[in-house]
Simulated scan of single mutants.
Amino acid sequence: MCGLDAALRVVGGKWKPLILFFLGDGPKRYGALKRCVRGVSDKMLIQQLKELEAHHIVLRTDHQEIPPRVDYALTPFGESLVGALRPLCMWGEANTETIAEALDETGKA
């Protein structure tokens, strides 16, 4: 298995890169994270967070309070992954128009 294959097994999918991007700004409660990752269902967000936690990318902290308060944060391992994703994010921002045109041409916009 090459390094890219290994990385994609951890971060693959539509929602995980976005979850990681927003957690890169700091810990977030579930509701705040849901507002950041627009369009994701509760079921999918919970599933993706559980997978990221299982891969030691995200740390879930239950504060054992009433009402319940749970925070999600990147582990040091997760922070190293977000560091690797940032150049891809910058590339996407720098090429937004070209990407949009290419997606329009293929009907995937």
Rank of each mutant, 00 (worst) to 15 (best):
P27G: 01
K28F: 00
S41L: 02
G31R: 14
K50T: 11
G26H: 01
R35L: 10
D42W: 03
G13K: 03
Y72S: 08
G92Y: 08
G92T: 07
V10A: 10
W15E: 12
K50I: 04
V40N: 04
V11K: 01
A54L: 12
L23Q: 14
N95E: 03
P87S: 13
G24M: 09
K108R: 14
E101V: 11
R9G: 15
A84F: 05
A94C: 06
Q47E: 04
K14V: 05
G39V: 00
S41A: 08
E51I: 01
L88F: 13
E51F: 00
Y72M: 08
E105T: 09
G24V: 04
G24E: 10
S41G: 12
A102L: 06
L85T: 08
R38D: 15
A109C: 12
L85M: 11
Q47Y: 03
D25F: 12
A54P: 10
D104G: 02
I99W: 00
M44E: 15
T98V: 02
R9C: 13
I66T: 13
R60P: 08
P67K: 12
E53V: 12
K50V: 03
P87T: 09
W15L: 10
T106K: 07
I46V: 13
E51K: 12
E65F: 00
C36T: 02
T75V: 05
L18G: 15
R29H: 11
V70E: 13
G107F: 08
P27A: 06
E53H: 08
W15M: 06
F22G: 07
T96N: 14
Q47R: 15
C36I: 03
P17H: 07
R35W: 06
Q64R: 15
R35D: 15
K28A: 07
S80K: 15
E53G: 10
L8N: 13
M44H: 13
V11S: 03
L52A: 12
D71Q: 07
E97V: 04
T98Y: 01
V82F: 04
A32L: 05
H63M: 04
H55V: 05
A73I: 02
P67D: 00
D25A: 09
